[in-house]
Amino acid sequence: MTAPAAPEVLGWWGVPLAILAGMMRGGTPFLFVSLGECITEKSGKINLGLEGTLLTGAMSAYAISYLTGSPWLGVLAAGVSGVGLGLIHGWLSQQPRVNDVAVGIAMIIFGSGIAFFLGKPFIQPSAPPLPTIHLGDWSSIPAVQAALAISPLFVLGVAIAPLLKWFFQSTRWGLFIRAVGDSPDAAKAMGISIFNVRMLSVVAGSFLAGIGGASLSLYYPGVWTERISSGQGLMAVALVIFAKWNPMQCLWASLLFGGAQALGPALQSVGIKEGYYLFNAAPYILTLLIMILTCSPKRTLTGVPGALGTDN
């Protein structure tokens, strides 16, 4: 490397640029986890354990990428590890008298335990990261180039969101999931196996969450450490509600939450220095406010799966 190219000073323009870049960089794991949680919740179960899945996915992706030299095998491994945890959650949370929230929290402990235990040897080495797609080469400004170096996983996630919407609206299997999530009794009358549908939904959701983990460790921030997720898996649960169980809105909400993560550092870099803890809490406060404003005891929230949060 020669000395850095003559730095262009962006000043205040850096803030919107950082948020835009943060949306695509930081939003990618949110996108995968929230789409995964969306599938799961549509079938009437909550999976709080996606925090553990995210960590296990991040660890597996990094480890496999390091061991084989192929980041894409790492992504696959992350998905497979997600499937493994999903099978446990899907089976256990459907046993009679077993609460899905409790299983989720136990799965956070178990999943993070497994990820930390097996991940010890992979903290030091550097694994090959995923390639990036350079959309910003038209610009001479390095900041723009960097902001537009997007991950193929982001593209994949953006493509999955409308597909999922179409899947829920127009396919037979999508209908099954919605039926099981909205009124299990009716679904049973239709001859659908509630157990199988929910199992598949939880497993598919965990698969996506595992890939979200791969995005953390192989794209951005691109390392494996035990603090890599800092609660994003749990936050995705709130995000799905924010998005009203609509995959397209999951996309927008993920971008928003990802951008919000970039807000604190970006504002400090231009001189706003007070209250960064409160900035960091902004997404949570916003979600709570939206819930308060849009929920009402008189009508159910549009999109909310009827069986969610019941023992059914």
Partner: peptide, 19 residues
């Protein structure tokens, strides 16, 4: 991290036993 694995396993089995 071993204690996390331990705690997680015990809880998963205890939760299962309810069923």
């Amino acid at each position: 991290a071993t204690v996390l694995v331990f705690e997680g396993l015990v809880f998963l089995v205890v939760l299962y036993s309810d069923s």
